[in-house]
């Protein structure tokens, strides 16, 4: 506040520099995605026709080509990829919550001096390489991998389980990598929970399980939804996990976009897939902002 009144020019600079950086390198690029998605692919560098073409001396024409979007609607592959992304993102978000909620709850209820080390232990794997953490699961899940070795040795199974290159492996990979994203916001809401409410309920004879269902859970819902969206949105466009852990039948938008771009060199089609993904993410993003605000308001 004090900087504001005395330094009008500094104030403008402080706002303008990050604003223009983000407008140029984050917002503006989406317009190019939209533009290229409406152009035709050609074998050239860059591999698309420009929308605005000069026919002869100064006469300019704009050619819009909706065939990419038509293809997205007509070829069921893309619709299946959208459904596949929604399904994988939805189920793995649910799994993250089911595992993350008890963990966040246990950390929030642990003795005060243990909380910081326990939280650090949740974040620590997140600081090591994402790719390498997925690679670790290949070694564990593959046919002659660690998990099958242990299960065969224990005599639980007779023949190796096929987990790698199936949807199950994708779920494991997603939950493993995105777990910190639900534990942290959940912990933040649970630790701020007014414990006098629980004490009052207990004094009035309310059982612990009922206390949890009637007080703790409803009050932590903003954290639950914020955490859910923090997993759901990036997983919708996930590429590395379905590529390395999933099989050829694991259809997801991010992976399909990568193939169209790098293997088929079809930039316009990849752009229209990106546009589709963006549209699919608008509602979850608005929900995320809404629940984050509510979680903030609950805190103050």
């Amino acid at each position: 506040m004090s900087l504001k009144s005395t330094l009008p020019t500094a104030r403008h600079l402080i706002i303008a520099v990050p604003w223009f950086w983000l407008a140029l390198f984050f917002l503006l690029p989406f317009l190019f995605v939209l533009k290229i998605s409406l152009s035709e692919p050609v074998l050239a560098q860059p591999p698309y026709f420009d929308l605005i073409r000069e026919i002869e001396d100064g006469f300019v024409t704009i050619v819009l080509n909706f065939s990419n979007y038509q293809l997205l609607l007509e070829d069921s592959l893309y619709f299946k990829a959208l459904l596949g992304s929604l399904k994988i993102a939805g189920i793995s978000t649910l799994c993250c919550l089911l595992i993350g909620y008890p963990m966040a709850y246990a950390i929030a209820r642990s003795p005060a001096h243990w909380r910081l080390p326990l939280l650090m232990l949740i974040i620590l794997p997140f600081w090591t390489s994402f790719l390498i953490r997925i690679y670790a699961w290949i070694g564990i899940l593959k046919g002659n991998g660690l998990l099958n070795g242990v299960l065969l040795w224990l005599g639980i199974i007779d023949s190796p389980l096929e987990i790698l290159h199936t949807p199950v492996a994708v779920y494991i990979g997603v939950v493993y990598n995105y777990l910190p994203f639900v534990v942290l916001p959940l912990y933040a809401t649970l630790i701020r929970l007014d414990t006098t409410l629980l004490e009052a309920a207990a004094d009035l004879g309310c059982r612990p399980w009922k206390q949890f269902m009637l007080i703790t859970l409803p009050l932590s819902l903003p954290g639950v939804f914020a955490g859910a969206m923090l997993v759901f949105i990036p997983v919708m466009g996930e590429f590395v996990i379905p590529d390395l852990l999933g099989g050829p039948d694991t259809l997801m938008l991010g992976k399909l976009m990568w193939t169209e771009f790098f293997s088929n060199k079809d930039w316009p089609l990849a752009s229209s897939l990106a546009a589709l993904l963006l549209v699919a993410l608008i509602v979850p993003f608005v929900l995320l902002r809404h629940f984050e605000r509510r979680a903030e308001e609950a805190a103050t």
Partner: peptide, 30 residues
Amino acid sequence: RFRGRGSLEVMVTAPLVMPEVIIGLSLLLL
């Protein structure tokens, strides 16, 4: 309060969740 506060807020939260394939492709096209 300042002009562009809302857009700045959105632009600093969106990259946290934006799928990497979208950030990568859109920046390449730019």
